[in-house]
Amino acid sequence: MNIFRFLGDMSHILSFVILLLKITQGKSAAGISLRTQELYMIVFCSRYLDLFWNFSSLYNSFLKVVFIACSSAIVYIIRFKSPQKDTWNPELDNFPIQYLIGPCAVAGLLINQDWTPFEMIWAFSIYLEAVAILPQLFLLQKQGEVENLTSHYVAALGAYRGLYLMNWVYRYFTEDDYLQRIVWFAGTVQTGLYIDFFYHYYQSKRGGLSRPVKLP
């Protein structure tokens, strides 16, 4: 464990807290992509299948359960719970996620660590996580203006990715046996997707102002 990874995980948890607060307290899922949340649920459920046979630490196992529980709760609330379900707009949030899931599944089958079923599923989850934010970013782009809590949510997710990048660099230089090409590649792609958002986030929040983020 290093400080980058720990802060990355905390930032990830913060993103769940922000989103859960927004949809439970604000009673609205407007501006939130259910498609992205469903992708995250698939990502966590497939990657953390190894909860049943891999044990690395209590910290890890506990957070795996937290991530599965939070993403499932978010999907459940937006899809089935009133009044939130009526605030979800399927016409706006219509990114064709089959075009993300399909290629990631093929990539998982072809490019993985050692050709075992779990390694294929695991690689699939890594590839899918890299692109899972796309429906959310497209939704924000369509709306043009992003509500504060939603922008904080995306910013927390982006911070998590950025901190994980630093964690990989740190581990590469401090550990002898640390080499994870699949994770590094997918993680770099994923972090890159946030760059444009962060530019606009910075523009609207600088100087202590709390204006909504405007996207062109």
Binding site: R5, D9, H12, D50, N54, S56, S57, N60, L63, K64, F67, Q113, D114, W122, Y164, N167, D177, Y178, L179, Q180, V183
Partner: peptide, 10 residues
């Protein structure tokens, strides 16, 4: 050689 990485990250 290198051992496969442990899955110790989230």
């Amino acid at each position: 050689g290198k051992t496969p990485p442990k899955k110790d990250e989230l």
